[in-house]
């Protein structure tokens, strides 16, 4: 799946990919929808079994294929459906954000949040916040694979 568009022709809108864990954040997104909470339409969600499932390779591939930011959302630490998945994810993304910073990509383009299934409002607020953050950073050209 490619999410590229011709930036030049239309007004630029940030494209954000969200990895949501099935048990918490995806349910949170669902609740936000059920409550008819207003949120920007810039976020595309991929459902994953656990935030611990999210491989840094997925994130790099997303940036290669043209997203401007990535959000990884999972259960609060201690609430993981699989007990410990998000603890591993936490270590992984703390480190990965710093690697992003080190190679010159703004670490704000990779955001992580813990959102439970009951936090529909938090999900909507997070989506709004992340969208605004990425909008402020502008379109991402770094790491983009121009050849496809």
């Amino acid at each position: 799946m490619s999410v590229k568009s011709s930036d030049a022709q239309e007004a630029w809108e940030p494209k954000i990919l969200a990895f949501c864990c099935n048990w918490c954040s995806y349910a949170g997104a669902d609740l936000a929808g059920l409550n008819r909470t207003q949120q920007p339409p810039n976020v595309r969600i991929i459902r994953v079994p656990c935030s611990g499932r999210v491989d840094p390779q997925f994130i790099m591939r997303a940036f290669q294929d043209g997203v401007d930011g990535v959000l990884v959302a999972g259960c609060h630490p201690g609430d993981c459906h699989y007990s410990t998945g998000n603890f591993f994810a936490r270590r992984r993304f703390l480190l990965f954000q710093r690697i992003f910073d080190y190679i010159g990509i703004d670490p704000g383009r990779l955001q992580n949040r813990w959102i439970s299934g009951a936090e529909g409002d938090k999900f909507a607020a997070t989506v709004s916040k992340v969208t605004e953050d990425i909008r402020a950073l502008g379109p991402n050209r770094k790491l983009r694979d121009e050849h496809e």
């Binding site: 390779q57 790099m60 290669q64 190679i103």
Partner: peptide, 15 residues
């Protein structure tokens, strides 16, 4: 062999 994939290679390997 392009820059994007080279970067992904090195970052992935380092990770």
């Amino acid at each position: 062999n392009n820059l994007s994939h080279n970067m992904v290679y090195h970052l992935t390997r380092a990770f």
